[in-house]
Amino acid sequence: MPQVVVTIDGKTFRMACADGEERHLESLAAEVDGRIGELRKSFGEIGDQRLVMMAAIMTADELSEQRRRIAGLEKALAEADKAREDAVRRLADSDKRLVGHVEHVTEAIEKAAERLERRV
């Protein structure tokens, strides 16, 4: 299992990750480091634990918002799928009615053709 060394708020951490996930872990650590840096600029020296807690809450808030958006998109997608299925069903019904009308017209034309042949 690979190990990655990351720096967050000036502190170095050695972390294990799955093969191929090294860059992703480094990217996540850089994002956390950036958030803590922003908070430190905004609030000054308020303590490492408080900064980490605030960064975690900000991240959790963003995650919650993304989950809410995903749920909304999934609902919209389900509604769109249902509307598509309804449209396909209506189209199939229309096709059946059209075929019925064409068959009826075909029968009428055949009967008219038979009457014309008898007259000739």
Rank of each mutant, 00 (worst) to 15 (best):
E117P: 01
L28Q: 10
I46W: 07
S64R: 12
D81L: 12
L25K: 03
G37A: 02
A71I: 09
E85W: 00
I8H: 09
G44P: 06
G10F: 06
V32I: 13
M54R: 06
T106G: 13
E114P: 00
A56S: 12
R68C: 06
S42K: 13
E45S: 11
R23A: 13
K82L: 14
V120M: 11
D9A: 15
A78K: 12
H101S: 07
I57S: 10
A87D: 14
E110P: 00
V88M: 10
M15D: 03
K41Q: 12
A76P: 01
A55Y: 04
M1Y: 11
A113M: 14
H24P: 00
D93V: 11
D81Q: 15
E103S: 02
L51N: 10
E26N: 02
S64W: 00
I8N: 07
E26V: 02
L28K: 05
E103V: 03
K111R: 15
L116Y: 11
G47V: 01
V6R: 05
E117K: 12
D48F: 10
G100W: 09
M53R: 07
R89S: 15
A18I: 04
L51S: 08
E117T: 08
E114H: 04
R89M: 04
V102D: 00
D9G: 03
E31H: 11
D9M: 08
D9Y: 13
R90H: 10
T12V: 11
R97G: 01
D86F: 11
A56D: 03
L116V: 06
M53F: 15
E74S: 09
R35I: 03
R89L: 14
T7P: 01
C17F: 04
S42A: 15
R90F: 07
A108W: 07
